[in-house]
Design a protein around this nucleic acid. Structure first.
Lengths: 224, 224
DNA sequence: CTTGACATGGAACAAATGTTCGGATAAGAT
DNA sequence: ATCTTATCCGAACATTTGTTCCATGTCAAG
């Protein structure tokens, strides 16, 4: 009498399933169903998939969300390379130039730039400015660069800050060092000499978190 | 005889549905089902949702993938702000410093950095280097900066390139201008004077696509 | 060889999910 | 008021999807 040949045990099937889920997500931007895994890996029964999914969950490699369809989630991605990542929208407020005060942080954004969450310590309350002109070149920031700023009236010693100099009506980027009666504004460029000004002249607008420079013709903030 | 009060027509329900889908995706990292939309927006029947989804598809605002569960896709996101985006992995090859040649582009990566796809013209064949020291400061690139490079032996006039100077055994970043017999290497810093060298001395390693500087203590390439 | 942990197969069930249909209603246009 | 279009509603239906159960098989270790 004819007996169906049972297929050989695939001892690394759980790894295959993990890889399949990642592959499927990359392509479809959604997670596969049990039966999609079954068909994709030529598994004979959904129960086999269910069995391995349960084991994977016990091993802490995946999460499952109740009984919802497509409720599988990868805990860690193979190679640590998640295909997508949270992007935090940051308002783009406009230009920053030597002779002009920066736009007010609460102003209506001219556009948005999105930064991967993992690039920032915490995503609250940032904004982006585009540098105009070469006046901040001693901060190693050139024309067209984009800077990400956290608005704050105080920074730690040595941090790069957006500074408004009341007496000169000028915006600049400098490293700030507090001294007794005065404040030392030090350029990032090591051969440039520092500037010493009275404390009451300095108005700190925010702390520079990041500098982005694109040389391939793509301008980052998606103006709309 | 008692008649159930029919709710008022919500003339902007389709917009509500669009916003709901975006919100749901942001939170759950997956698309909602018809009935999840129904419950979330307190709609009386799944047929109402189905009706509006059909209309949204006709208007080209969403796509639907067959009859699969969670087969709704947003064509455009409200405000153009997709919560996630493709991140392209770029190999991090190591340091770049004045006295050293850069690592070979095919070398084993020391880590990976992920860049949003929209920040790059095309994602093929890039690598990342971390700048060591202040030797490239006249290119407005400082110690610790990360540069994204496309390896190529040729660049257009005026483009920023990674250059190996054979005679000095030195790596540098300069804007390259071809002249008759010689090549002009111009610093990004406008007050620095250009360097003229014979063409055979210059070996172009690649074109600088992007410069990233993080001042908040997070180092971008996730070394593993 | 025997044993036991682990993996597979098939079927059925229950729940979730997408769809269809006819009729009713709301609201703007004429 | 009448007409017309768009919308809403409830129910039922057809698939899809997750799950369970039990029998059976594989294979490495002892």
């Amino acid at each position: 009498m004819k007996r169906k040949q049972r297929s050989r045990i695939r001892w690394n099937l759980r790894q295959e399933i993990l890889a399949f889920i990642a592959r499927w997500y990359r392509q479809e931007r959604t997670y596969p169903t049990v039966r999609e895994i079954q068909r994709g890996l030529k598994i004979s029964s959904p129960s086999v998939v269910a069995y391995h999914l349960r084991r994977l969950e016990e091993e802490g490699l995946i999460d499952r969300i109740g009984r919802r369809s497509r409720g599988i989630r990868l805990r860690r991605w193979p190679d640590g390379l998640a295909p997508e990542e949270d992007m935090i929208p940051i308002p783009f407020l406009g230009p920053i130039a030597a002779g002009e005060p920066i736009p007010h942080p609460d102003a209506e954004p001219l556009g948005w730039i999105r930064i991967p969450r993992s690039w920032l310590a915490d995503g609250d309350d940032l904004f982006a400015l585009r540098v105009q002109g070469n006046s901040m070149i001693d901060a190693l920031v050139g024309d067209g660069d984009l800077i990400i700023v956290r608005p704050t009236p105080e920074v730690e010693d040595g941090e790069m800050a957006v500074v408004w100099l009341r007496d000169r009506h000028e915006t600049t980027l400098k490293r700030v060092y507090r001294e007794k009666e005065r404040i030392c504004l030090r350029p990032a460029h090591p051969i440039m000499s520092p500037l010493y000004v009275p404390a009451e002249v300095v108005q700190i607008q925010g702390k520079v978190i990041q500098v982005l420079r694109n040389l391939n013709g793509i301008s980052l903030p998606a103006e709309r």
